[in-house]
C-alpha cells in the first residue's frame, strides 16, 4: 500500500526532473534519482491520493485512450464556445443542474470534474459526495438522470475501468 504511494510520487518527481533538464547525462540522472527518492520517502506517508492508482496494462491503455477522448472533447468545446461568442445575438441558455456519478475514488472524481470543466459548455461548480453540480451554458434538461446520461457518462465509462 505504502510502497505504491512512494513509487507513484517518485516516478512523477523523476519525470518532472527529466523534463526540466531535458538531457540524459549520468550525473544529472543520479542527482535526480537521489532527490526524488528522498522527497518521496519523506512525503510518502502524507500524500494519500495515489493509493487508489492501479499499475496494470489495462489501466495504462485506458489512460492513453482517455487522453485522446479528452483532447477531442476539448477541441469540440472550444469550437462550440467560439460559435456562441461570434454569433451577434449571443445564444446562451445557462443554468446550474445536478448530475450523479458512480465513481468512488477521490482521484477518479477529481479527473472527472476537471474533464467536465473542459468539455462543451459545462463547468463543475461543486461536488458533494456523488452529486456533481454543473453550470451549463446551454441547459438540456433539469432531470438528474437525463443530465447524467448527457454529460457524465462518456467519461465515466472509461474512468470506471481505470479507477474501478
Amino acid at each position: 500500500m505504502k510502497i505504491k504511494n512512494i513509487a507513484a510520487i517518485f516516478l512523477i518527481l523523476l519525470s518532472i526532473w527529466i523534463l526540466l533538464n531535458s538531457q540524459f547525462q549520468i550525473e544529472v540522472m543520479i542527482i535526480g534519482v537521489i532527490l526524488s527518492f528522498v522527497i518521496s520517502i519523506i512525503m510518502g506517508s502524507r500524500i494519500t491520493v495515489f493509493n487508489e492508482l492501479k499499475f496494470s496494462f489495462g489501466s495504462v491503455f485506458y489512460t492513453i485512450w482517455y487522453l485522446f477522448v479528452f483532447l477531442a472533447e476539448l477541441v469540440k468545446s472550444n469550437l462550440d464556445v467560439a460559435r456562441r461568442v461570434l454569433t451577434p445575438s449571443l445564444p446562451i441558455n445557462p443554468g446550474i443542474i445536478k448530475t450523479k456519478t458512480v465513481l468512488k475514488s477521490k482521484m477518479g472524481r477529481m479527473i472527472l470534474a476537471n474533464s467536465i470543466t473542459l468539455t462543451p459548455g459545462t463547468l463543475t461548480v461543486d461536488i458533494e459526495d456523488d452529486i456533481l453540480y454543473i453550470h451549463c451554458i446551454d441547459v438540456c434538461c433539469e432531470d438528474i438522470d437525463k443530465a447524467t446520461a448527457a454529460i457524465v457518462d462518456k467519461f465515466e465509462k472509461i474512468l470506471v475501468k481505470i479507477y474501478g
Binding site: 441558455n93 443554468g95 446550474i96 470534474a113 476537471n114 463547468l123 461543486d126 433539469e142
Partner: peptide, 29 residues
Amino acid sequence: TNPVSSHVLARAAHYIKIPLTDKTVADLL
C-alpha cells in the same frame, strides 16, 4: 491547473452569491 482554478473560482463566486444572469433557467445548487 487551468480547470482546477476555474472550478475553484466558480465555487467561490457561488458561495459569495454573485448573481446569475437573467437568462438563467435553473439553479439547483
